[in-house]
Amino acid sequence: MKTLLLHIRILATLVLRETRASFGTSSVGYLWAIVTPAMSVGLLVFIFSLVDRQPPFGTSLAVFFATGILTIEFFNKLSNTLLTSFSANRALLNYPLIKEADTLYARTLLISATYVMIMLIFFGSLFFADAGVMPQNPHMVFQAFAATMLLGFAIGTLNAVIASLWHSWPQIEKVLTRPLIFVSGVFYLPSRLPTEAQNVLYWNPVLHCVEWFREGFYGNYNSAIFDPYYPIAVSLGILLFGLAGERFTRKSRSMA
């Protein structure tokens, strides 16, 4: 119990430090970090609304794209930030209280909190601008967020471990995750794709997270492809590899 409290204190300290380190010293920095992704999504939505006024589903184009893009951004942010976690926080490890895994937890907590804010602001302002909808099943939106967080944490942890062993991994990972936005149902309705395409896309866990969000936002989304157990199973499997990898490669990392 005492250890748990200690751990919570360490994590809180690390989160505060990460906040300062990534967003600068001013509180405007953090605000900026929240506003920029919201604005980039807004811009993207604006461009797409010029091209195609008809949302693939529902009444709001903004909501449809945002559920996709914000989920992917959240996932990418987690997996990419965690990837550099070990190398960026090397100096911190000189404090014996801090273990490498703590930096992973701290970054995950911070990014998740940031994205909660981003989503609240984005969907909130959409709603007040009369261009959005209230989520029909709020509990599913929370689940979707948690699932995305779990997936991002799992893949980010594995990324961090691989990157610490294999220095070209960040570049390779970048190449591998680039097509993610196209295969995650951001711009189209996955349920309307030919079954052959659905069967392929099914293997992308991020797509399930996007669909999960939409199931939460739209009462009658009825995704033909969504399966909540799949992304969770993938996350848990990868997380197991990531955590075990972190533990067993720790010694080889600490001598570098």
Binding site: R17, G24, A91, Y95, L97
Partner: peptide, 17 residues
């Protein structure tokens, strides 16, 4: 020490830790 953070912030970090 995080070099982009001020001395005070670094001290705060360690003392909180």
């Amino acid at each position: 020490f995080n070099s982009t953070m001020t001395g005070v912030e670094n001290i705060k970090f360690v003392s909180r830790l």
